[in-house]
Computed example of a mutant assay.
Amino acid sequence: MMDGDLTAEILPTSKNQGAGGRSGLILVVIVTSCIISLLALVLSAVSLSNKGTTNINVPGKVSNSGSDDSSSDKIWTFAIGHDGTNLEYIDEISGTLRGFHVDLVNAVCEIANKNCVLMWDLYTNCWESNAGGLPRGGKGLMNSWYDACTGWFGTYERSRTFQFTDAFRKGFNGIFYVKSSNPNSFDPTNISGKKIGFLDGDATDEHCVARNSDRITGANILPKNIRHYVTPMQLSQAVISGEVDAGFTNSNILSAFTGLDKIGDEYSNCFYKGGAMMMRKDSSLASWWNPAFARLQETTKYKDICDKVAEVHGDRPGGDVSVICL
């Protein structure tokens, strides 16, 4: 029997179609409709039994899954400042950023095979605070101007807003600075009623001083006696001019300036983690940065980078390798 004959038998032509033929056609349509309905019910049941996947879109990102970050051609951007020390400074001859942080970023990105770019910006665009108020994330990192900020200490205040990679250098303790020879006899163990200057957004802020009330009388400084400055130069000038009785910041950042003396004990509880990459909580940066840095430490390259602190960047003030490298 030919295929054409079979079709004619199931669906009679109008020439041969009688009442019985019409009944057969109606029956076929009804059966087909039932099958389609049954399949729809089965597919619906299967669909309902599966859990859905929700992608939360973040400004500037594809999703929180980090799928866009895994692209091999993604350019990772890191904010970096220039405190003038051997950590990060601008080379006046070439006009480029140099220092320990620059060398380390280049090495980690090379090991991870990532495209990385350093972007100079103000520190306050990474982290800022108002004098006497609660510190907060800077608009640059909050708004994803870059993927991370370079060399920031992990603090309890910062961890409420951001996350950190593994530390790649030691943290600097906090200490008071006064004008050379301390002409006003500032007592770092009793700062009641004294005006104290801080770097805006610094880990060694007024909240760190307050945590040391067992060692410092007047540690809970009144807002009217707190002064914030944007740059280390501004803070150093405020101390020298007598605008503030003393400055409080880390033991390294004002080493580039003359006319100042450190005074009193150092305080190590301003942070819980040393210098690291500070990033948004939705970032996947740590997933490749941490393994790459761990591999760097296993080679001689990390030691070479540390040696360059003195051999290449030694004309700059700052801590030596013993207080910088892990």
Rank of each mutant, 00 (worst) to 15 (best):
S47E: 08
A40K: 11
L43S: 15
L87K: 05
S44K: 11
D103W: 00
S37C: 08
A40S: 15
F100V: 00
S71W: 03
N86E: 06
S71H: 11
L43D: 14
T53P: 02
A79T: 02
G81K: 04
C34S: 12
N64A: 10
S44F: 06
V58I: 14
I56H: 10
V42N: 14
V28N: 13
D69P: 04
V46R: 09
P59E: 05
L97C: 03
V29G: 03
C34G: 12
V29T: 06
R98P: 00
I93S: 13
R22K: 13
E88N: 08
W76L: 06
I80C: 05
L38R: 12
L27E: 07
D103A: 09
V29A: 14
V46P: 04
H101D: 04
F100P: 01
P59M: 02
G52P: 00
V46K: 09
D91R: 06
R98N: 13
D68R: 02
N86S: 11
L48S: 12
K61H: 10
V31Y: 05
L87N: 12
V31S: 10
L48K: 14
T77K: 15
T54L: 09
V58G: 01
S65H: 01
E92P: 01
S23K: 14
I80K: 02
L38W: 07
W76K: 09
T53R: 08
D103Y: 01
V62F: 04
I75D: 10
L27N: 13
H101S: 04
I30E: 02
T32E: 08
D83Y: 07
I93Q: 13
P59A: 08
S33D: 08
F78S: 08
H101P: 00
K61D: 10
N64T: 10
I75G: 01
D73I: 08
A40V: 11
T96R: 10
G24M: 06
V29P: 02
N86F: 00
D83C: 14
I90W: 07
T77D: 09
S63N: 13
L25D: 13
R98Q: 12
K74R: 15
V28P: 01
I35R: 05
S71I: 10
G52A: 11
I26G: 12
